[in-house]
């Protein structure tokens, strides 16, 4: 028993270290004073952070990524909520087929998905980053929201909604007043998954950049030309933002309910 505990703890420690080391390297390198990415950094400085804010292209890309992520998240939540109600609460012909179809974007390689949408939108002469990337990110986020919200809905007894209905609430009011508040952890988790899926996507997104570009694509473009630690500085800021969001979610609904 003790041997197992010791072994399990060592493996856990190893995994945590393997996950943290790249992050430490990125954060360390971002603080470097030299012109090259180096770890440990030679000299401490915040000049690469300053450089990020001096370059308008990063700010523009960040704003666009934020807009895309918010749009894709809210739309995918609405679609995910409607789909999970249909899939969990009703039995209909082709239910399994619909469930599989909603999961299929996760099975297709992102390069293929990006290419396919590129061809589709080019043929249709729709050359807007907002429409193209918006569609792509929605396609990528919906499988997550459907899955997370379905799991949340399955755990809620139908009798809760029936109790609301029999005592005088119509179906919609029962859903809004009883079901939705009790799905809060699921809604928070779905929001986080959808947002991160959209905000982080690079592989498929690079095919659909026309008039405006996203932050990951912009970072990639910068790193192709320059080799200074600016990209490390951006990455560090993204890490901090992510940690902040996770901590807030934890405070609000409890992390185990979000991830579990």
């Amino acid at each position: 028993m003790r041997a197992v505990g010791w072994f399990a703890r060592s493996v856990t420690a190893l995994v945590v270290i393997c996950m943290l080391v790249p992050l430490i390297v990125v954060v360390g390198a971002s603080l470097g004073g030299g012109n090259e990415i180096a770890f440990p950094p030679n000299g401490l400085s915040l000049r690469w952070y300053a450089n990020v804010f001096e370059r308008q292209r990063f700010l523009t890309a960040f704003q666009f990524s934020l807009l895309l992520a918010c749009a894709a998240t809210s739309l995918s939540l609405v679609i995910g909520l409607l789909c999970s109600v249909a899939l969990v609460r009703y039995r209909f012909v082709g239910r399994d087929a619909v469930a599989n179809l909603l999961n299929s974007p996760l099975m297709v390689p992102q390069v293929v998905l990006g290419m396919a949408l590129l061809i589709l939108f080019s043929q249709a002469a729709i050359v807007s980053s907002l429409i193209g990337l918006g569609a792509l990110h929605l396609i990528l986020a919906v499988p997550y929201t459907v899955r997370v919200l379905s799991a949340a809905l399955v755990r809620l007894p139908v009798s809760l909604e029936e109790a609301a209905v029999i005592h005088g609430a119509n179906r919609l009011a029962a859903f809004a007043m009883i079901t939705m508040p009790n799905m809060k952890p699921g809604l928070v988790a779905a929001t986080m998954f959808a947002f991160v899926t959209s905000f982080d996507n690079f592989t498929a997104s690079q095919f659909l950049v026309w008039d405006r570009t996203t932050l990951p694509v912009e970072i990639y473009a910068y790193a192709m030309i320059e080799s200074d630690p600016t990209v490390c500085a951006i990455s560090t800021m993204l890490i901090i933002a992510t940690v902040a969001i996770v901590v807030l979610a934890e405070r609000w609904v409890g992390l185990e309910t979000v991830t579990g």
Binding site: S159, E162, A163, V165, I166, H167, G168, A169, N170
Partner: peptide, 14 residues
């Protein structure tokens, strides 16, 4: 159902 003026106690209380 919501207009039938019924009171109901569920098995799991709900």
């Amino acid at each position: 159902s919501h207009r039938r003026n019924i009171g109901m106690v569920f098995q799991d209380y709900a």
